[in-house]
Nucleic acid binder design. Structure first.
Lengths: 117, 117
DNA sequence: CCGACATTTCAAAAATTATTGAAATGATCC
DNA sequence: GGATCATTTCAATAATTTTTGAAATGTCGG
């Protein structure tokens, strides 16, 4: 991942409304939500929301597709993972300062027997 | 983690120079680097760097301590992990859209027998 | 085709953020 | 104590970003 992309993605997330939007989409899963649904859920003006969607989309963090007269936005999970990996690249000089538990699923599947201390 | 903190941390990272600074500190490990060392490494004016350090510090992403006439800055790995976890909270509705490989260590220690495919 | 709805576009104003240069602080060396 | 080095503070300017309101586009149902 290039630095420019990472900055774009972080800048896209570094705003209260957009962070709300993105997390809502992340929690909604791959199927996404309509623009109107998001606007209602978060209480944002539709044109303001378009502006924020645009920034998220240009940052590569969401995709959109038309469905009838609505437009459905969805989080790009691959982009999110790439970003997280970029932040921790070559981290901690081999020390264990950085634990790998980045994904906290809604439904905890099953815990491993024991972590590598 | 509160939304406000997350926005602060993301905003702190959403700037080219600060992202460089933070990643340099992340790669330097828990011991950190002096302000001057960072300034030289990245070619930044010392007062500009102070401004950026301040933002990183207020966002809780770095700590600083004095050592002689230098001041040593270090990444806060705990804060980084908390932020990453916040982004992926309750993610993907149980689908596997979000993989857990957030930490890519500099020196690959030893590979586990087999990854969970 | 017309009316209603969902979303986007455009332009301007308001707010926030980054960089700069000069001067101040604090620690060390002689 | 005075010179020197490392970093910070302060104030001003420059640049970017967010919000707003009004009008436009595209889609559907009758």
């Amino acid at each position: 991942m290039e630095k420019t992309e990472a900055v774009a993605a972080l800048a896209a997330l570094a705003q209260e409304n957009r962070l709300d939007v993105f997390r809502l989409l992340v929690q909604a899963g791959p199927d996404g939500l309509s623009a109107g649904h998001v606007a209602t859920a978060l209480g944002l003006a539709p044109n303001t929301l378009t502006f924020h969607f645009d920034r998220l989309r240009h940052a590569g963090l969401v995709t959109c597709r038309r469905a009838g007269r609505s437009i459905i936005y969805a989080a790009r999970f691959d982009a999110m993972r790439t970003l997280l990996a970029y932040l921790t690249e070559n981290c901690c000089q081999g020390t264990e300062s950085c634990a790998p538990d980045a994904c906290v699923p809604a439904k905890p599947a099953r815990r491993k027997a024991k972590e590598t201390v």
